[in-house]
Nucleic acid binder design. Structure first.
Lengths: 133, 133
DNA sequence: ATATTATTGCAAATCAGTTGCAATAAGTCA
DNA sequence: TGACTTATTGCAACTGATTTGCAATAATAT
């Protein structure tokens, strides 16, 4: 609580009930706003989806959450990890797993070959999990 | 013409004027449906956006085009390349450049570390082009 | 406690993409 | 060539995800 409290305060933002609730529901699994909303409902915490969107946006700006995208037009949010990582999405059942990867080499290569100053990248994998395979 | 014609025919599809027109407008630069539509308008070829969507879908299925996504909810289409490649998007001006990359190692690592059977991946870079930098 | 102002929730809008269906036009075959 | 079959088109209307405007509400500072 305190850490999120502090980060919010540092940016002139307030720690509200909806924000606390949404924070508790976040996990290291990327989740859509719909999924987050459903989790909240199960906990008898009814929060408008607009508030969820705005709160997640705020969390992303403060570095508390990450926003990802897979193959559709839906954004997914997860707790910001200490560790930079990527995901594999099962195209059978939708299951998502983390992939840790040392990309230093890769980035070095890219930086060497591109005239762009590279700031960030998106990398996601798709396939079949053990069950679906 | 003949190659697209042949591919279409092989799948029981027809080569129509809209399809020819859309094909001529595709390039190796990823373009949104809106951009494609505007290019067509400039050439006095008015084609409904629904037709553009369906045609691009068809092209993607036949391996004539690729569908990509960057940071928003919009899909981008480009001519299917002989060469598998990725992109860098300039966050200043939107310019997109290709990045060629030997990912064999990377994929090998991932395959070794993940229990998933990996079928495909998305990899895009973001940064600033020379002008915007 | 009060004032200030960030935040919430509702309704309505927007944006990208999809679906249903009747009208049209490729390709086929006599 | 001309009739026929059926893929394809275009319109209208719809969906799903996200955003915006605004008045009501609730955190924080004084």
């Amino acid at each position: 609580m305190t850490s999120i409290q502090a980060k919010l305060a540092a940016h002139g933002h307030r720690l509200t009930k909806p924000r606390q609730a949404i924070f508790t529901v976040l996990s290291h699994q990327p989740q859509s706003v719909l999924e987050i909303s459903q989790k909240l409902s199960k906990k008898k915490l009814q929060i408008d989806k607009v508030t969820i969107y705005r709160t997640l946006d705020c969390f992303v700006n403060l570095g508390l959450a990450n926003k990802t995208q897979f193959k559709d037009q839906t954004f997914f949010y997860e707790l910001a990890d200490h560790k930079h990582h990527h995901h594999v999405v099962c195209e059978g059942c939708g299951k998502i797993a983390d992939i840790e990867l040392d990309e230093a080499e890769l980035l070095q290569k890219v930086r060497k070959n591109s005239p762009f100053q590279i700031k960030s990248h998106h990398l996601e994998f798709f396939g079949l999990c053990q069950k679906c395979h």
